[in-house]
Design a protein around this nucleic acid. Structure first.
Lengths: 228, 228
DNA sequence: CGTCTCGTATGATCCCGGTCATGGGCCGAA
DNA sequence: TTCGGCCCATGACCGGGATCATACGAGACG
């Protein structure tokens, strides 16, 4: 067996509390995987044999809706991917696709169960993570009733909040999303997404860069979608 | 101190595994509460001081959206109400309103934490419940992109699945919902909800009774909303 | 170099569904 | 009985956004 790269436990909050002995026991059972941009980690309907933990890159969780698709969430480094499916012992209810080059630690389902059996605090962390996602989903569900422009404004407001960097010209969100992605996030068509984005571009509210978005006028967004 | 009615632990799956001694310790700290139809258990923004467990009746969880309201879920006997807010130590993110006369056992937040501290299997059950709700929400979110008729068909299909009784004339769902409730569930206005419902009535698909709905043609619903 | 594909952009058209208005049945209060 | 609410129902109107069609720039590749 060739030398294996070390598992980056410390970049994964849920696994960070593991002690050295746990890590040593777990490490040989994990797989380290790399995915290119656009690659599929798993597809809706696949059996959930592994739980994946992202340590680099971002992944979108996509559910195929009757007509068009919908992006349920975007996960970043440190987050578990496909945890609920593994926990429920069901096939994945949605697909996971790499938005950027990604790396995951993938733990076989059986090992994962043994792990949470042994370490209750992991369960606690999972619980905390799930409740947060539940509340976020609740919000999104409620937001889905507004206009497309409203939903888009919300989207960029929360993106800016979660991963925006302050800059002299405005707030920069270092995440490339195609117009199609944007449309899938707010549940609309690519054309309308494009229309709103180009209008905002003209109005100097937001600007699309090669590797992300520059929000020039946060107030512009806020007056479209008064944040609560 | 007057004699207190016994706490119906056994009707609440999450609390059922408690042993006699736990129950004896917990009982004096719980409150038994009764709510009339239409009464408010708690309102969006209230501090989450109690976690409630329903043992009779049904409750709707409503979030006030920018323009109209949206019913996030409908909870029945045995289910926890407001668990996530308590767990996150935040104010309730939505309101809970009794759809029918309801009874709850309400446990003070502190006692609840002490409980899950002591009994890890309760945490497990919570986790299982949350993941199920998460998956249900995911589905609903994806469904929100379809037409109103599609969403309504989905609504009644899942209602029939969850609490429908077989009858010679069709499937009966013993749950009274006003047109406004129906509209809030699928995120539309009362008028369109009424329109679709009366058309379906004419087409002999569904019928509104005093105390619920009678679905005469499940196939009628299925061909509008092919269930996965 | 052409051309093929992919993402972006924009206009024309049409329809679902939101809004406004009106009316009817039912029930409890005066 | 009459009045005032509340819920259900139906019609007229109009606008946001989906759909269809077309076009343009950029990178990939023979």
């Amino acid at each position: 067996m060739p030398a294996r790269p070390p598992i980056p436990f410390n970049t994964i909050p849920i696994l960070a509390p593991l002690k050295a002995e746990d890590r040593a026991a777990l490490a040989p059972l994990c797989e380290l995987r790399a995915y290119e941009k656009g690659a599929t980690l798993f597809e809706e309907g696949d059996p959930a044999l592994f739980i994946h933990f992202l340590f680099v890159g971002r992944v979108k969780i996509v559910k195929a809706a009757p007509d068009r698709d919908l992006i349920l969430e975007i996960l970043g480094p440190g987050e578990p991917v496909g945890a609920v499916a593994v926990f429920e012992e069901r096939p994945f209810p949605a697909s996971a696709i790499a938005l950027e080059p990604c790396g995951t630690v993938s733990i076989p389902e059986r090992e994962f169960f043994r792990l949470i059996e042994k370490r209750p605090e992991i369960t606690r962390r999972l619980l905390a993570g799930l409740t947060m996602r539940l509340m976020a989903l609740n919000r999104r569900l409620a937001d889905m009733t507004g206009s497309v422009e409203y939903r888009l404004a919300r989207l960029f407001a929360t993106l800016a909040e979660r991963l925006g960097k302050g800059r002299p010209e405005g707030t920069f969100v270092a995440l490339h999303l195609s117009r199609q992605d944007i449309a899938d996030l707010v549940g609309t068509t690519i054309e309308t997404a494009i229309r709103v984005m180009s209008r905002w571009q003209k109005e100097g509210i937001i600007e699309t860069a090669k590797d992300g978005f520059l929000i020039r006028k946060m107030e512009g967004l806020r007056e479209i979608a008064p944040s609560e």
